[in-house]
Simulated assay, not measured.
Amino acid sequence: MASVIQFVGAGPGDPELITVKGKRLLEAADVIVYAGSLVNPALLGYAKEGAEIFNSASMTLQEVLDVMAPAAQAGREVVRLHTGDPSIYGAIQEQMDALDGVGVSYEVVPGVSSFLATAAALKQEYTLPDVSQTVIVTRMEGRTPVPQKEKLASLASHQATMCIFLSVHMIQDVVDELIAGGYAPETPIAVVQRASWPDQRILRGRLNDIAAKAAEEGVDRTAMIVVGHCLDKEYELSRLYAPEFGHMFREAKK
């Protein structure tokens, strides 16, 4: 009887940040195909003895499918282990569509994205009252293009909190686009490299100096860029806990 392939979000790096469900599936897997360029290899310590493990960093899409599909059709438990949450820059849609084409079933187990681990590292709430109630998750255009309406300069016009993936190697271009879109050069910005890993590093600055800081520290990959006035630490207190603000769980106090 065929089994169901499990696409599992491994979390941002810390092996303890995989979900309980993801860990259970990983422990039971007969075949594991993991994104070796980003997934912490320590997670493979959860694999059972005898599990077949494949690093997809050196594989093509077809090679990945040629491992997963026959194993699932043979009734073996298969985990496709992606970094963070697989729905964000995970390239899983093409895998799922291909599996649909050959009649192989699959499920997706969400994970903790690196933009959330970055907020934890910064000890920062992205959605502050009277500052920003919107978080934009995006990337700078590189070898992979972005739609015209999603250029950084266009998104910057909203002045929302922005979490920018896969772009730290082009940080000066990122800064130029953000300023062109309306952010002032003094807007606060943070760069977090390898959030939740033991060698995590945090750089803080302003748009007009962060590129130099990143170059000086040699931060040019595996880092999240966060920009926005939520980093200013000036905001209105939430109405949720204000004594005069009543709701279904608490009456307003006069």
Results as ranks from 00 to 15, higher is better:
D176S: 13
Q62P: 01
L155A: 01
P188N: 13
Q133H: 02
G228M: 04
A211M: 05
K21D: 03
V33K: 00
E234K: 13
A117R: 12
R143G: 04
P15Q: 12
M224A: 02
L81K: 03
M96F: 13
L65R: 04
V174A: 11
M170A: 15
L38S: 06
T222H: 14
G22P: 02
L155S: 01
Q93I: 13
R80A: 09
L81M: 06
H169V: 10
V135C: 04
S157D: 03
V67P: 00
A120F: 15
A215M: 11
A212L: 10
A51W: 11
M96Q: 15
T83Q: 14
E186S: 15
R194P: 12
F115M: 07
E52Y: 04
E217T: 09
E16L: 15
Y46S: 05
S238I: 05
Q124G: 12
D30L: 08
S132P: 02
A212R: 13
E236W: 13
S132R: 00
G111F: 15
T144D: 00
Q62Y: 10
W197A: 09
K253V: 08
T83H: 14
G142A: 03
G22W: 07
I210D: 08
L231K: 00
V39N: 05
T187K: 15
K151F: 06
A117K: 12
S3W: 13
A190H: 10
M96P: 08
I92G: 08
D14S: 15
A211G: 04
A242V: 10
I32L: 05
H82I: 09
G181D: 12
P147E: 03
S167I: 05
I171C: 08
I179T: 11
Q148F: 10
F165N: 03
V64D: 07
G228R: 03
D220E: 11
G75W: 12
A29M: 00
T134R: 04
A10T: 02
K149Y: 07
K48R: 12
S154A: 15
R204P: 11
Y183E: 10
P243Q: 00
P110C: 08
G36S: 01
A153G: 11
A117S: 14
C230M: 10
Y46W: 07
L99C: 11
P110L: 09
R239V: 15
T138R: 03
R80E: 09
T138W: 04
T60I: 01
L26P: 00
V192Q: 12
V108L: 12
R194W: 14
G246E: 01
D14H: 15
A184I: 09
A117F: 13
K253Y: 08
A98N: 07
I32V: 05
A195E: 14
Q200L: 13
V78C: 08
